[in-house]
Design a protein around this nucleic acid. Structure first.
Length: 403
DNA sequence: TCTGGGGTCCTAGGACCC
DNA sequence: TCTGGGGTCCTAGGACCC
């Protein structure tokens, strides 16, 4: 090992966490230099939240997930742009391709984040730090957006390191420096510790990661639950041994698929809800059929104007991907709530317990009616793939209440 | 005009079965 | 003849992540 490499020690650090900087905003302004130094917020329009804010906007306190109304109030001079999902996806897949040219062991977390295990690339590409800089240079040169990279011996530490590296930097945390790096951090920095758990831990007198590390596991488990407590203790010592899974094995489908939507205005009209449930169901079952999966458990979600949210679910005798069946189940669950004039903000449909469609053995022979629905679904799918998603809609979706 | 939409995993109680 | 004890499925809720 050359002195150079001994010094940067990144052979102890096979894991890279690459995180794009303010991704949706960076993509939106990459061809608009006049916007680089002014606050830019990317967000959904109506009743939406901030998807991304560039660094000038962040200086005003604007961050992801903030309600757009508050964001505009905090930074009235900001340029607000709608997200360009197609463009973001295109940049994302190009960036992921760069990662895969560095190592085959790439676990994409989301459009803007991935873990890389580069231990097989050292001979070819140099130390982990050098590989991190190589990745950053390529992403910047080829896609004109920046990213930050955390380098460490484990997934959880690499993740925290990339946050420290932001924006547009690299942070390497070799094993011998892990506790010094982790222990001063606020517990809320740990992966899996959100607002609620952070508050619980604070009530137990635990504010820093170091304090959590020196708390008996049993105490943590009593405070926040068996699984979370044990996991947290590992995270606090940086001894999380999770390895990367390049992608979910193909024989293993997603566990659930769903869709929900916030109404433009709260509603207490059953007909509006039923129609929305149909639209959402059609969207979900179409995705299911495209993925070749069917599911048994149908769950609806209802959020009221005061933001309280309930779910109701029903498990069917057989897995289905049929729009009519899922919709009928969803409407049955909704009607069983017996709501009178409750103001509803959002409804959603989710199908769980997904299995490959080919494995579904129906116990009962399909009646003519179900068979008819399946044929109708296939016709809708075919038309959608030929003419685009909006080409065919069920008749009830065409009635009334269009803006 | 406060608070999106896509998911995953965990917990807890009751039913049901052996 | 006091009522054990698992294991699994179902349902509802909640926390969390990006």
């Amino acid at each position: 090992m050359s002195p150079d490499r001994a010094q940067d020690r990144s052979h102890d650090c096979p894991i890279l966490h690459v995180d794009m900087d303010a991704f949706y905003a960076s993509v939106a302004i990459r061809d608009r230099p006049e916007l680089h130094d002014v606050p830019v917020i990317v967000g959904g329009g109506h009743r939406g939240v901030v998807l991304a804010a560039n660094y000038p906007a962040r200086r005003h306190g604007v961050r992801s997930a903030l309600p757009m109304t508050r964001a505009r109030r905090m930074c009235p001079e900001a340029v607000v742009l709608p997200p360009d999902y197609d463009e973001v996806e295109s940049v994302s897949s190009s960036v992921m391709e760069i990662f895969r040219q560095v190592t085959p062991v790439v676990e994409a977390v989301s459009l803007d984040e991935a873990f890389l295990d580069v231990s097989g690339s050292w001979r070819r590409l140099g130390t982990s730090r050098e590989i991190a800089e190589h990745v950053r240079a390529r992403v910047s040169d080829e896609q004109r957006v920046t990213c930050s990279v955390g380098v460490a011996g484990s997934v959880s530490v690499a993740k925290l390191a990339s946050r420290r590296a932001k924006p547009d930097g690299v942070v390497v945390v070799p094993p011998r420096e892990v506790t010094a790096f982790l222990h001063p951090l606020d517990v809320g920095e740990l992966y899996g510790v959100g607002e609620k758990t952070r508050e619980q831990l604070h009530r137990l007198g635990l504010r820093t990661v170091g304090q959590v590390a020196h708390t008996p596991v049993a105490t943590l488990q009593r405070g926040i639950g068996a699984a979370a407590g044990a996991h947290l203790h590992h995270l606090a010592w940086g001894t999380d041994r999770r390895t990367l899974t390049p992608r979910r094995p193909t024989h293993e489908p997603d566990r659930s698929m769903g869709a929900d939507e916030t109404f433009g205005r709260d509603t207490d009209d059953r007909a509006v809800v039923v129609r929305e449930l149909l639209r959402l169901t059609a969207k979900v079952t179409h995705r299911m059929r495209t993925a070749g999966v069917a599911g048994r458990t149908v769950t609806i979600r209802v959020r009221f104007s005061d933001f309280t949210t309930i779910t109701r679910s029903r498990t069917l005798p057989d897995a289905t991907d049929v729009t009519g069946e899922v919709h009928a189940t969803a409407v049955g669950l909704f009607d069983a709530l017996g709501l009178q004039r409750a103001r509803i903000r959002l409804v959603g449909v989710r199908v769980e317990g997904l299995v490959p469609r080919g494995s579904v053995q129906r116990q009962l022979v399909l009646g003519a009616r179900e068979r008819g629905w399946e044929d109708a679904d296939r016709a809708v799918d075919a038309a959608a793939s030929r003419f685009g998603g909006g080409a065919v809609r069920r008749a009830t979706l065409l009635l009334g209440d269009r803006p």
